[in-house]
């Protein structure tokens, strides 16, 4: 474990906590894409299949359970909570997320480290996570005003994978140059997708004005 990866995990955890707080405190999920949240549940389920078969560390197991639990409860709130589900922008959150999942699965069948169920599904989760934010970014462009909590949530979510990129550089130089193309390239794509959001987020923060994404 290095400081970059720990910072990445904490940033990721913070983003999810902020989203859960927003939903629970305001009893509203306005501006949040249910499609992206459902993709994250699939990402965690397919990535943590070896949760009970392979013990890495107490930290690793705990964080996996926290990520699974929080992401599933967010989807539950948005789908079934009587008050929250009324605030879901159903008619704006129209991104066909299966158009993202299917190519990722096919790509995982083609490009992977080894052809086993666990490995192919893990690879699928890496590819899927790279594009899972797209429905959320599209929804942000459609919703006129973005509330601060939602903006902070997306920013921290993008920042976590950027910290993971730094972690991978650090590990490359400190762990006998182990090459890991699949997470590296996917992580690069994932972080790049946030580029314009980062630009507008930092601009709005500097000019102390409301975050607004161009349509």
């Amino acid at each position: 474990m290095n400081v970059f990866r720990l910072a990445g995990d904490m940033t990721h955890l913070l983003s999810i906590i902020i989203l859960l707080l927003k939903i629970r405190a305001t009893k509203s999920c306005t501006g949040i894409s249910l499609k992206t949240q459902e993709l994250y549940v699939i990402v965690f389920l397919t990535r943590y299949l070896d949760l009970f078969t392979k013990y890495i560390s107490f930290y690793n197991t705990t964080m996996k359970l926290v990520f699974l639990g929080t992401s599933i409860s967010i989807v539950w709130y948005m789908r079934y909570h009587k008050v929250v589900k009324q605030t879901y922008n159903k008619d704006q959150d129209t991104f066909r997320h299966y158009f993202l999942a299917i190519p990722c699965f096919l790509l995982a069948l083609l490009i992977h480290h080894e052809f086993t169920v666990i490995e192919v599904l893990w690879t699928f989760s890496i590819y899927l996570e790279a594009v899972a934010i797209l429905p959320q970014l599209v929804l942000l462009q459609r919703s006129r005003n973005i509330d601060n909590l939602t903006g902070n949530y997306v920013f921290l979510l993008g920042a976590y994978r950027a910290l993971y990129l730094v972690n991978w550089v650090y590990r490359y130089f400190t762990e006998n140059h182990l090459v890991r193309w699949i997470p590296w390239l996917s992580g690069l794509v994932q972080t790049t997708l946030y580029a314009d959001f980062f630009y507008y987020y930092i601009k709005s923060w500097k000019n102390n004005e409301k975050l607004q994404l161009p349509a």
Binding site: R5, D9, I56, E114, W181
Partner: peptide
């Protein structure tokens, strides 16, 4: 492809 990397990350 490289060796199957250890899955110690989240």
């Amino acid at each position: 492809s490289s060796s199957k990397d250890v899955k110690d990350e989240l």
